[in-house]
């Protein structure tokens, strides 16, 4: 009897899953994840072979197009600022008093030695614009039921031809993501956790990134405080602000 109930439940959830259009799921995720603007402080712990380093920073962003980050610690990185406008990225280094545009091959460099490249941070186009998504089953991750979305690129100029995203089917936040090469080889993996509710939206506050081809334990990204819908002065998103 019990078994029947379980399988019934499974069928129902499957039906439900099909009913949910993959694009709609992504849209709901988007509502959670993106915002008019936000200000957050974060720590990034890079687990290297010879010990780990933690970098703290404060970021401001408006929509997906404008972002400004200032590094707070350690002392060496303090005052380093990063400005992203559309698809351009500048870094200001206080020790040299230089603002340098990160472009071309430099975008492929890792951010502060992490498993994340500048380029990974740069692509701000909506997933739904780049990929056609299909729901590919459901899985349970750490007690949460998720949909497994498979995203296949529908435009050519994307870094990853395929993504797999596990989305919490109650809270509409991603819990896990895998990035694949065209050949299907797994390149990067990220796992989200510490999901909290702020201003009525669910938001993951910790992410572990891992470059699957490289040795090491990956990079842990934690949001220590986050505020949505703040008033951010427009001048912050200018190159002049980098030098201040």
């Amino acid at each position: 009897m019990k078994r029947i109930v379980y399988s019934l439940l499974a069928i129902i959830s499957f039906l439900d899953l099909n009913a949910q259009n993959a694009d709609e799921i992504l849209k709901k995720v988007d509502q959670n994840m993106s915002s008019e603007n936000r200000v957050f402080e974060s720590t990034m712990t890079i687990n290297g072979k010879r010990g780990s380093r933690t970098i703290t920073s404060k970021s401001y962003s408006i929509g997906d197009k404008k972002a400004f980050t200032e590094y707070l610690s350690p002392a060496r990185e303090q005052g380093t600022k990063m400005l992203k406008l559309e698809n351009q990225l500048w870094i200001y280094s206080p020790s040299t008093d230089r603002t340098i545009q990160i472009s071309g091959h430099m975008l492929r460099q890792s951010v502060m030695g992490s498993d994340l490249s500048y380029e990974d941070m740069m692509d701000d186009r909506k997933l739904t614009d780049l990929y056609s998504a299909t729901v590919n089953g459901s899985e349970n991750i750490d007690g949460r039921n998720t949909w497994v979305l498979e995203l296949n690129a529908k435009v050519t100029d994307v870094a990853y031809a395929k993504r797999k995203i596990w989305i919490d089917n109650e809270r509409y936040v991603p819990l896990r993501e895998e990035l694949f090469a065209k050949s299907g080889q797994l390149l990067k993996q990220s796992a989200m956790g510490n999901i909290i509710k702020i201003d009525g939206r669910w938001f993951p506050t910790s992410i572990v990134y891992k470059d699957m081809l490289k040795q090491g334990d990956g990079t842990e990204f934690k949001i220590t405080s986050i505020k949505f819908n703040q008033v951010i002065p427009e001048y912050i998103f200018t190159k002049a602000a980098l030098k201040k």
């Binding site: 031809a161 090469a181 065209k182 080889q185 081809l213």
Partner: peptide, 15 residues
């Protein structure tokens, strides 16, 4: 061994 490259569009690929 795994080799990773990017195609003309910049998409990662590995084989």
């Amino acid at each position: 061994l795994t080799i990773r490259w990017r195609d003309a569009n910049g998409t990662f690929d590995a084989a």
